[in-house]
Design a binder for these strands. Structure first.
Lengths: 260, 260
DNA sequence: CGGGTGTTTGAATGGCGTCAAAGATTGTGG
DNA sequence: CCACAATCTTTGACGCCATTCAAACACCCG
């Protein structure tokens, strides 16, 4: 029941924050979200959450912990397709997507809340909850967008760029949900999982990480990843935009609590 | 105006074939498809068909020629995200997808037909055209599914497996639209484009192709790719199912014309 | 026939994987 | 609270897969 570490946005507030970052929400929309409370189910680290044997398609919100979509190829190799963070949705898209047919596995302990009720409400009263609907659609779009980014990484970038780009993505996403303080955030991915995500061996991930540390770009200790030079990392990863997110938040202050 | 080579299914019949392979179609659904005729627009090889500067989202059917979705990364490298064959749809999915926001480029000369009228018809009379709707949804799903396959290739397979798996995918897709005869089909991808799709250099693509030829698995001459040993290729590519497609076709014989 | 594009080949370099083993860290039970 | 196991990280040595550079060869088209 104890959350992992610096949980700043609790439960459903995460979703409100995510949506508000993408599109303005009306007062009654925020009300719908914030009044929503459901018990959250917990999956232990390593557990399979959804997949072939578990084909339930109820939309769910990740309330805490990290998970991943993955695929095991016939040769036994594991390929992580995308990382799911708190505030992300599973099966959140109204229509069927290939992304939602894939196995989902908990990386750390993961708490998940069923939000099918919210979606039903939104569908039944589209005139009241247009903002939420738009936001959900944009979240799904961003989800797929990251997918494309990752494909480009795998296909056309050498290891240091791959890792740099991936780390920046995680950093930006954690910022979006206020999980970053002092440029640091909890990063429960082992180097093996990083390798599985990026198509690299554990050993090589380790070497490149050491190199990035030596270049004063990042620092990783005890599961805490510190970004020491965002601009430098972005330059390395061939990314133009270092800070493209979390601007809309000031516009719709859904959450009152700030970082400690 | 002259199609490229062995065009067996003409125009809209391609779409009927694709849909019928996925789900049974009622008589009136086939009728709707087959009576549809629109002039097709032609894009020359190398032309950008859709993309950032060209954000039109009318659903279109590729009637002849090959195209690709691609992304150019900041370092200048080109990554093909997926290949589009005759019978494939562009923006065919009712809702917004990230896949539909990327650049589409013609590989060979490509003829494209606007089918927004069909989709409108289907949406307005869902009770009559449920099969088409279902088929379209499944086509979009298969599209995304191939995407995941490709990601696994890029992330966790060495060059020979990558090429083998990719070639099998193309082979199966060409079979589905009757573009294969005697295990051969027109393959307009240059080795450079293969490299761009698979994250390999031209030189290495060439070497691996030579190796696959030496092993009597494939044969490539003058733009014609011949699959000499499907099972062997599939074994190499770590694929379980050599022939999983085109079974449903016998169920709904949409097209009368067979290969010559 | 000549230029452009695509294919093929060689040689040299290096990125990255594999094998192996030694630290470091975390968690668990005594 | 310590000891131990298990997991994760780190490092070295070695070798292969793949890229790069460079140049020759084949093909298509005007």
């Amino acid at each position: 029941m104890v959350p992992e570490a610096p949980i700043m946005l609790a439960q459903i507030q995460l979703l409100a924050r995510r949506l508000a970052a993408l599109t303005p929400l009306a007062r009654e929309e925020r009300a719908l979200l914030l009044k929503w409370q459901r018990p959250s189910r917990c999956y232990m680290a390593g557990a399979q959450m959804f997949g072939a044997q578990n084909p339930q398609h109820h939309p769910k919100l990740i309330v805490s912990g990290w998970a991943c979509r993955e695929r095991i190829s016939a040769n036994g190799k594991r390929q992580l397709l995308s990382i799911l963070l708190p505030g992300d949705l599973i099966h959140g898209c109204a229509n069927r997507r290939a992304l939602d047919e894939v196995e989902v596995v908990a990386i750390s302990n993961v708490h998940v809340m069923n939000i099918s009720g919210i979606l039903r409400e939104v569908e039944e009263h589209p005139e009241h909850y247009a903002g939420i609907a738009r936001g959900l659609s944009l979240m799904s779009l961003a989800d797929e967008e990251r997918f494309l980014d990752h494909m480009v990484r795998l296909g056309s970038q050498p290891a240091p760029q791959r890792i740099a780009g991936f780390v920046i993505e995680l950093y930006q996403r954690c910022r979006l949900i206020d999980y970053v303080s002092a440029c640091s955030f909890v990063m429960p991915l082992t180097q093996e999982l990083l390798g599985n995500a990026l198509g690299l061996s554990v050993v090589h991930v380790n070497r490149v990480m050491r190199q990035l540390k030596a270049e004063q770009l990042i620092d990783l200790h005890g599961g805490i990843l510190k970004i020491m030079d965002v601009a430098g990392l972005a330059r390395l990863a061939d990314i133009d935009m270092p800070e493209p997110v979390a601007l809309r938040t000031a516009n719709g202050p859904v959450c009152d609590r700030a970082a400690g």
